[in-house]
């Protein structure tokens, strides 16, 4: 069988953040980012869905071992971001505004080296139950 299948792993992390552009005035940040610019931060329960697509291995029947994928997400993502302030505590967002878009791209780039090149990777990140982003689009 040479059929491609997508498998998904759902994980979550809780973090504080603030949206602002340090090159702008406080007033312009307020105008563009509104209450998300609160200088004392706010936070979210992020829900992360990692999608891996490929042909199931003929010997195991797996696209990827879900236990290994879960362990990879815990090691590379959860340990970096869970119960952290994304702006203050993480090196990834020292110079990058931690919007959901940017967080999804960062997560993709952190995981991609550990997923074999013959498989596709896509990140879906829920910032709230009502707002989510996907990368690659």
């Amino acid at each position: 069988m040479n059929k491609r299948v997508s498998v998904y792993r759902h994980e979550h992390f809780n973090a504080a953040h603030r949206l602002f552009n340090p090159a702008w005035t406080f007033e312009k940040n307020e105008e563009v980012f509104g209450k998300c610019n609160n200088p004392s931060y706010h936070g979210h329960n992020y829900e992360l869905v990692v999608k891996v697509t490929g042909v199931p291995d003929p010997e195991t029947g797996y696209v990827i071992d879900m236990k290994e994928l879960s362990a990879l997400i815990k090691r590379e993502i959860h340990s970096r971001f869970d119960h952290k302030n994304l702006n203050v505590d993480t090196k990834e967002f020292q110079q990058l505004n931690p919007t959901a878009e940017h967080i999804a791209i960062v997560i993709y780039d952190l995981l991609r080296p550990y997923i074999s090149a013959d498989k596709d990777l896509q990140i879906r990140l829920y910032e709230t139950p009502r707002n989510f982003v996907e990368y690659p689009a």
């Binding site: 504080a16 931060y41 706010h42 936070g43 979210h44 329960n45 119960h83 952290k84 302030n85 203050v88």
Partner: peptide, 12 residues
Amino acid sequence: GICANENWHGHN
């Protein structure tokens, strides 16, 4: 534990 992170964390 991790909830004591001095730089805060957050929730929906």
